[in-house]
Amino acid sequence: MPRVRSDDYQTKSHAIMDCAAALFAKEGYPSAKMQDVAKACGATKSMLYHYFPTKDDLLFAMLMEHLERVVSSVEDAIALQAPPHDKLLAMVQVYTQKSAQSRRRHMIAMQDVKYLPRAKQAPLIELQRKLTDLIAGLLREVNSGLPDEVYKPYTMMLIGLLNWTDMWYRPSGAMKSQELCDRISRLFLKGFMAENA
């Protein structure tokens, strides 16, 4: 049997994850079956199991890849040599862009981690925690001197705003993505910068 090249493997596994994300978003993770994923992908179940032995493995791989990409993009934005306000805008832009590129995976990441066994949840929760810590650190740069305990709630407010925007925003609508990011940044900053110790 010919050895599968790693780039072929990556391409096929990505295609499977994309099909599965569409199915999970439509049917719900608990209701979807591996045979449904195989059918949606135009693949046999045995081919599907070659890439992902279980449905949990498929969900885990999908969410791990998505969250790693979001975290990496946010790290890059925060590492920019720029004023804190500009870094916040850059972070909003990459966060919004990464979630929009894989909108279905982003929705699943918010809703379906709970269906995985605890051992598979742990690294995903760790990535979510890392993302939260990165954004909290950026908010500390933007408005330093607030009590330590308020940065986490503000971080969760901002992440909630960004996550739920992904549910309703349509790039084909009247508001283009750059304007959306600018407005989100201004809306958040005006309130956040009004806060003082």
Rank of each mutant, 00 (worst) to 15 (best):
L158S: 09
E126T: 13
V113R: 14
M156G: 00
R103I: 13
D148G: 10
K130F: 01
K152H: 12
D166T: 12
L116S: 01
Y169T: 04
A174D: 12
Y154N: 10
A136M: 07
R183S: 13
E126M: 07
L180H: 09
Y95C: 05
M157C: 04
R105I: 00
E149V: 11
R105N: 08
R186N: 10
S144N: 12
S177D: 05
R118N: 06
E141K: 07
K98L: 00
A109D: 08
A79T: 02
L162A: 01
R103L: 13
L189P: 07
M175K: 07
E179Q: 14
T132L: 07
A119G: 00
R104N: 13
Q178R: 11
S177H: 01
A109R: 10
R170L: 11
E126K: 11
I78M: 03
L88A: 11
Y115G: 01
K130I: 04
Y95N: 10
V94F: 09
T155A: 07
L88M: 09
A77G: 12
L116Q: 05
M110L: 13
K130G: 03
V142R: 04
D182N: 13
L180D: 10
L180C: 11
Q178N: 10
V150M: 07
L161F: 13
Q81D: 15
D148Y: 02
A82C: 02
W164Y: 01
R103G: 10
G173L: 01
F188H: 01
P147N: 02
